[in-house]
Design a protein around this nucleic acid. Structure first.
Length: 564
RNA sequence: UGGGGAUUAGUCUAGUGGUAAGACGCCUGACUCUGGAUCAGGUAUCACAGGUUCGAAUCCUGUAUCCCCAGCCA
């Protein structure tokens, strides 16, 4: 079997990139090594789009025998980068469950070597120092349809170039006075090859190298050489860098150094959110959300805070696959992965978001008892817990209708339903306020149905959740919905800010069973029949705050919506 | 009007000449002390037009549409 390569591949996904790697392995390319890298610039927070790249790069790094993935910061622009971002990025990658081992690198660690390579390019006649201003350079560059013109400084002597470049490094010039450019082809139809800038002067303090440097390498140059220095075999990046590949190759070729291969894939886009750094920053800075980790944001830190599990995010990335066409994945897929994970692992609790008082008129006043509730029907090892019950309880407002439509089988006058894990109750009376709003419901319970079933075997259609009024603990519940009303806000003709969903957050005081009072930050539960909730960092002792991570699938909502 | 990519169901993704696969979504139904979960079934002729072939999503030709590129950002 020719496709029997030496990998640890089980039923892992195959995609065009892994196919290429498999072929390389079969052909013995790169001495059988597989080395990838995840190379973020530390100038912002990681988002779900980055997760795809992380899963791909680290996934490949784990998949093949002896393979690895380097964590490398592309920190070549000191004016926008910060150590704060380095730390958050590292934490997010770790939280997602990936490990770079010893292989944590920074492009800034290579500055000296990158500089020496630049001198070599000058010596070989492959680079020159240009004195054109930024505006002039733009003019000389030409357009998409017209070739560029060569800079008057393009043919300086090697000695002069070397002298100028050394003086650039020495700090003799101001920002913008000079740049180092590759000498390639001003007539190239690929604009990236029209003598691209390799180094620019920036008198700025770098978060790692301080003021050691006042010249900084550009992305194309630094990235290509960093990959080469680290012996990266497959350099995986997104589609927009496709036009840069000739330059990526040129840098390594011109210097005669180790050759890495760049392969591009389509980035992840998700419906009902935006992914560009610019838009995310705008949402934060203009106060449309409460910071980078606002649970409505698509950042990793926000998803974590909202209650998403790393497993669900990785699962989604795997299911989406890797290909070369621009796509927008439905948020529903991520939600599905989340529900699948949490359904198996999250303990169940009862809480009422919008309480309606129910008095069980035939239950003795001042008394209470405890019913046993199953913590997770999907996993009996999670055991049971006691839930207190008494004469007055709260149920969800939506679970009562005085004049119910067809197919509504919850509580209404004369109707019997089951209180989950407790007993059967029948509605006998409705109490209204002066405006005709239902403020209280009276019921009787069947004492023989304790535990949830009637001995005569009669069935009820509905089972609803509840909490005992006397034992209920209040908690703040933050109910989130999509941040945007449209599937593709960035792709819309309208300004994306106009598509913000103004009902994306509803805060309510819920009433919950006592077991929820002691929740710790980060604890995840399923609130029965409502959704999955996660204790927020704002939780204080005795004052729990829960984020609704996602709702449960709601068949009734669909039916009732259709009936209207 | 330059160059580089892409085009398979509502959404992702597989298929690389032998008669369209999987997942999500949606629709039906079963079951159910979460209208949850679970289970069963349904849901496309492969952008279009020609051509080659016994046979094409797969090969050829042409057309259309969409995305990216003119930072001393990455």
């Amino acid at each position: 079997m020719s496709d029997n390569v030496t990998t640890t591949t089980g039923d892992l996904p195959t995609d065009f990139i892994r196919s290429i790697i498999n072929d390389d392995q079969a052909a013995g390319a790169y001495d059988g090594r597989v080395v990838t890298r995840f190379p973020p610039e530390p100038n912002g927070y990681l988002h779900i789009g980055h997760a795809k790249s992380i899963c791909l790069n680290f996934g490949v790094g784990e998949q093949y025998d002896g393979a690895r993935c380097h964590m490398r910061f592309d920190d070549t622009n000191p004016t926008r980068e910060d150590i704060e971002y380095v730390e958050s990025i590292l934490a997010d990658v770790q939280w997602l469950g990936f490990d770079w081992g010893e292989h944590l690198y920074y492009a800034s660690d290579y500055f000296e070597q990158l500089y020496r390579y630049a001198e070599q390019l000058i010596l070989d006649g492959n680079a020159y120092v240009d004195g054109l201003t930024a505006d002039e350079m733009r003019e000389y560059r030409g357009t998409l349809t017209e070739p560029g013109r060569e800079s008057p400084w393009r043919n300086r002597s090697t000695e002069e170039n070397l002298d100028l470049f050394r003086r650039m490094r020495a700090g003799e010039f101001s920002d913008g006075d000079y740049v180092l450019r590759a000498r390639i082809d001003m007539a190239s139809p690929n604009l990236n090859m029209r003598d691209p800038v390799l180094y620019r002067i920036r008198h700025a303090e770098h978060h790692r190298t301080g003021d050691d440097w006042c010249i900084y390498p550009m992305y194309d140059y630094a990235h290509s050489l960093s990959d080469s220095i680290e012996g990266i075999t497959h350099s995986l990046c997104t589609l927009e860098f496709e036009d840069h590949r000739p330059l990526y190759d040129w840098c390594q070729e011109a210097l005669g150094i180790y050759r890495s291969r760049q392969i591009e894939f389509a980035r992840l886009n998700l419906t009902h959110t935006v992914m560009s750094k610019r838009r995310l920053r705008q949402l934060v800075e203009e106060g449309h959300v409460n910071g980078w980790d606002d649970p409505r944001m698509p950042t990793i830190s926000a998803l974590r805070r909202r209650g998403y599990t790393p497993e669900s995010i990785r699962d989604m990335c795997e299911r989406v696959g890797v290909a070369r066409r621009n796509t927008v994945t439905e948020l529903a897929l991520l939600e599905h992965c989340l529900r699948e994970d949490l359904n198996r692992h999250a303990p169940r609790r009862m809480a009422v978001l919008h309480p309606l008082k129910v008095v069980i008129t035939n239950y003795p006043e001042g008394e209470s008892e405890e019913f046993q509730a199953i913590n997770n029907p999907e996993d009996e090892t999670m055991g049971t817990r006691g839930v207190p019950f008494s004469r007055e309880i709260y149920i969800e407002r939506d679970d009562f209708m005085e004049d119910p439509p067809r197919r509504f089988y919850r509580l209404s006058p004369g109707r019997e339903v089951r209180l989950r894990y407790a007993c059967l109750i029948t509605c006998t009376d409705v109490v209204k306020d002066a405006d005709g709003n239902v403020v209280e419901v009276h019921c009787t319970y069947d004492p023989d149905s304790r535990g949830g079933n009637a001995p005569d075997g009669r069935r009820v259609q509905g089972t609803i959740h509840w909490v005992s009024a006397a034992h209920a603990v209040p908690l703040e519940a933050r109910l989130y919905d999509n941040l945007f009303t449209e599937a593709d806000p960035a792709g819309s003709d309208a300004d994306f800010l106009k598509l913000i969903n103004h009902d994306s957050l509803e805060v309510v005081t819920a009433l919950a069973e006592p077991a929820l009072a002691s929740a710790n930050v980060g604890d995840r539960y399923q609130f029965e029949r409502l959704g999955y909730f996660c204790a927020d960092v704002d939780t204080k002792p005795g004052a729990p705050v829960f984020n609704r991570t996602t709702t449960l699938r709601d068949t009734w909502a669909r039916i009732s919506g259709r009936q209207q």
